[in-house]
Simulated scan of single mutants.
Amino acid sequence: MTETPEKAAELIWERAAPHFKKLYRTQYYIKVANVKFLDEYNFFFETVPMKSKTGIRRRSEPLHTLERYDLAYLERVVAELSKLTKLSIRYQGFVGMLWPTSGKVIATANVSDQEDKWLAEHNKD
């Protein structure tokens, strides 16, 4: 049975929602990783606290794997997921690639570059 983009997005959000704790001074987002050597896309829920005194560390929770390695299919899944949540969606391994339908650039920088910049801006003493 083939997974529809709607079902994939619902499953991803169902798995992500329990991790969204709405903690003060904490950044949350969904990361989509392009795993080229396995021909799949992986979704993660990322939690990035700023200067945590409570011992909470950065966490990455795996949510779902799309084994259908098709950029147009991924674009539909992301569109459906965006309807379910207002969380940011960041992309790893998509630098310079374009969405097939809209022709827009998927990512100009990898997630780790974006995280480093955000942490540097928000962890100033």
Rank of each mutant, 00 (worst) to 15 (best):
M1R: 07
T4H: 09
T4N: 13
P5H: 01
P5D: 10
E6W: 05
K7F: 07
K7I: 11
A8Y: 01
A9I: 08
E10P: 13
E10M: 12
E10D: 09
E10N: 10
I12Y: 02
I12K: 00
E14F: 12
A16P: 00
A16G: 13
P18N: 05
P18Q: 04
H19I: 03
F20T: 03
L23T: 08
Y24M: 14
Y24R: 12
Y28D: 00
I30D: 00
K31V: 02
V32W: 01
V32Y: 03
V35C: 14
V35W: 09
K36T: 07
F37L: 05
F37S: 11
Y41D: 11
F44R: 02
E46V: 06
T47L: 14
P49Y: 04
M50N: 04
K53T: 14
K53I: 12
T54A: 14
T54W: 02
R59L: 11
S60N: 10
P62N: 04
H64I: 08
L66V: 07
R68K: 13
D70G: 11
A79G: 09
S82Y: 05
T85D: 09
L87F: 06
L87D: 00
I89S: 05
R90Q: 01
Y91Q: 08
Q92N: 08
G93H: 02
V95R: 02
L98F: 02
L98Y: 11
W99Y: 01
W99I: 03
W99K: 01
P100D: 07
P100W: 01
T101L: 06
T101H: 03
G103R: 00
K104P: 00
I106E: 04
T108W: 08
T108F: 13
T108L: 07
N110H: 07
S112P: 02
S112N: 14
Q114G: 15
E115D: 15
D116Y: 06
D116N: 08
L119T: 05
